[in-house]
Amino acid sequence: MSNIKVLVADDDPNVCEIISLYLKQNQYDVVEANNGKEAISLFESSKPDIILLDIMMPDIDGYEVCKEIRKKANVPIIMLTAKDEELDRVLGLEIGADDYVTKPFSPREVVARIKAIFRRMPALTNNTNTNENKDFTFSSFSILVDQREVIAHGEKLFFRPKEFDLLLYLVQNPQIVFTREQLLQKVWGFDFAGDVRTVDVHIKRIRDEFAKHQILCIHTVWGVGYQFHINKKE
């Protein structure tokens, strides 16, 4: 995990200090921001590999910071929040966060979440089964695995890191119906503490992006879960 740069954005200096110290002990590079404006500025100047983003910050809250960053990059974002309501967690996921940690939390948990995100990304793009390093081409879109890009009708579609991971896993396992719990385990990892609504939010965003090109490829199997299936006309 050396050379991984983490932007820690939290208005509580004690939280920043504790997380930063633990991250540095685990060989991460760390930059700190104490408000929303500073977080956006440091994101642009320091080019972090992952962001720990507090929701309740002065001047610009974490939701707005997340939205602003998502306009420019797909860097993984973990939301730090004192809120424990499902609506707040889902909102964070809907605007582009990849994961969330509810305060109070231990620095060890934060590091575990970071490792889980980076562990899943190469695991999915270097699958040791039959689809290893294989690009996928359909009549209406293509998935470039190594580049982590989806191209439809000559246009690059916008997928956040976890959305791409979820789409790729489904594409690598066509026709198979997965429950939400199975997708949480396979894509987010066994140590993800979120709920199954997380999967629904990400599926909706993937569908919305494909809908711009009138592509339907992820289907709901009612009472069970989701499957990837391409009609011949796609």
Rank of each mutant, 00 (worst) to 15 (best):
V221W: 10
L23G: 09
K134Q: 12
F210C: 06
P13R: 03
N126A: 07
I114F: 07
E149G: 00
M121G: 00
R119C: 03
F136Q: 09
H153I: 00
V75T: 15
Q147G: 01
P174G: 03
D208W: 04
S20G: 10
I51F: 12
E209W: 11
R113E: 06
D12K: 07
R119N: 09
T137C: 06
K47F: 07
A152N: 02
F105P: 02
D59Q: 10
A73S: 15
N74R: 10
I117C: 07
S46D: 13
C217L: 12
I230P: 03
E234V: 14
T81L: 06
V110H: 03
F141T: 01
E155A: 04
M79E: 09
I50H: 07
F164T: 02
H153G: 02
I4R: 14
G92Q: 09
L23Y: 06
P58D: 01
L124R: 04
I218L: 10
V177L: 01
I78L: 13
V199W: 03
G92Y: 08
D135E: 00
L42M: 12
G62N: 09
S106Y: 03
A123S: 09
F138N: 02
N74H: 13
P48I: 01
L168G: 03
D84V: 04
N131K: 13
G62V: 01
I78R: 01
A116G: 03
I60A: 06
G154S: 01
E64D: 15
F158T: 14
L21C: 08
S140I: 01
P174E: 08
L183N: 01
P104I: 02
D135G: 01
H213I: 07
R119K: 13
I176A: 10
F178M: 07
F118M: 11
P107F: 02
V75E: 09
T198Q: 08
Y63V: 15
K156N: 02
I95A: 10
R207E: 13
I77C: 13
N133L: 13
I203G: 06
Q172E: 08
V8H: 05
E234P: 00
R197A: 12
K115G: 07
C16A: 09
I230R: 10
A152H: 05
M1L: 13
L52G: 05
Q172F: 00
A112T: 11
N34M: 11
K103R: 09
F118Q: 07
V8M: 05
E44R: 08
D195M: 11
N129G: 15
N133M: 12
L23C: 08
K5N: 08
P58F: 03
E86S: 15
D49H: 11
Q27E: 14
I78C: 08
P58W: 06
